[in-house]
Design a protein around this nucleic acid. Structure first.
Lengths: 186, 186
DNA sequence: TAAAGCATGTAACCGGTTACATGATTAA
DNA sequence: TTAATCATGTAACCGGTTACATGCTTTA
């Protein structure tokens, strides 16, 4: 499997952490990986099919009383091998996050100062919300899943989100100040 | 124009900062916006055409001696209005940067510790490189373009990159330490 | 003489989102 | 009775990348 099928590797990885249905994998990603990964059902179900085609996963059909039928996927040994191969490949390039606020800011000379400051304040609020969400997830993991073998790695990724979000929050405060001291022109 | 045509707004914005050809806009983006925006010619030329169709830009053909012909685009007053309307729309949601390293880290229990640490070291190096690049661009703007009316806004966006990259670098150092103190299991 | 820079463009492809479709159970 | 949760899937669409095509000039 080529290096670029991130979606397939993400699902392959989730199979090793105890998530076995497309539905539960989506939930896991939305809940605990959402600071650095997201995914839609439109990707998940075709991707799972491809994993089976490649022999990296196997399906077990389970019919439940009063619930829709389940397709439970399990990683095969060749799937595990493929995952390990991918894990050790060094990351080739840093992500470039497209940032709408920064794009707007870049052209904000075209706009009056109060409107620009308002923009930053709204962004600031959203960052605080995000920070609290991450903290909440971290506390929950420490309380409820600290015994889970993957937990230390989950915490590490959350700390990345907490650190960079914190830095962004500080930047908001500093930037508001900079803008206030910037003389406007017509 | 809908809120989502970021590419078109980015180009519209660049028209106000003194970049008028597809080629020079691409250069500007690669050189000074690349920490939060990137673009390919495959997007630029069709998008410029659309801006003209909408009446937001006008073309002036210039033939040069010994160089290919140029198409110079200029923003119209209705284009300026559309840009302003977009600038003041608050950012609806924070960007989720898909991060390959974090994805790998999330599943790194499947891998031995030294390999994981190596991954972080490589990422660390790339972050330092990026940090230095941003610092270089900032210094260059302060030295050579400090008179440019947009310069204060360029600096602000660079500071965002510097702050968050710095935070990521600190996280690398801390995480390496955490991993070293983490007892491995088989 | 080869590579890099200037300059514009298109077609094929690909990853991902959104909307749609289905259908049962349980909690408010 | 309505909404939410569980559960799986497809088709249309869209934004963006890559590869390809052209061609002249300047620098190494």
């Amino acid at each position: 499997m080529a290096q670029k099928n991130y979606t397939q590797y993400a699902l392959l990885g989730l199979l090793t952490t105890g998530y076995h249905t497309g539905y539960s994998m989506k939930q896991m990603i939305d809940g605990s990986l959402n600071h650095f990964w997201k995914i839609s059902y439109g990707q998940i179900y075709p991707a799972l099919k491809m994993l089976v085609d490649k022999g990296y996963a196997e399906v077990k059909y389970t019919s439940q009383q009063g619930r829709p039928d389940k397709k439970e996927y399990y990683i095969t040994s060749s799937g595990k091998e493929a995952l390990k191969q991918w894990l050790k490949q060094p990351v080739q390039e840093l992500p470039i996050e497209k940032n709408e606020l920064l794009l707007k800011l870049f052209f904000s000379r075209q706009q009056d100062k109060p409107t620009t400051i308002k923009q930053i304040e709204i962004y600031h609020e959203k960052l605080l919300e995000r920070y609290n969400t991450y903290e909440g997830i971290k506390k929950m993991i420490l309380l409820e899943s600290s015994e889970h073998k993957d937990a230390p790695f989950w915490i590490i990724t959350l700390d990345y989100g907490l650190s960079t979000t914190h830095a962004a929050i500080d930047w908001c405060i500093k930037t508001k100040d900079t803008l206030l001291n910037l003389k406007e022109e017509e």
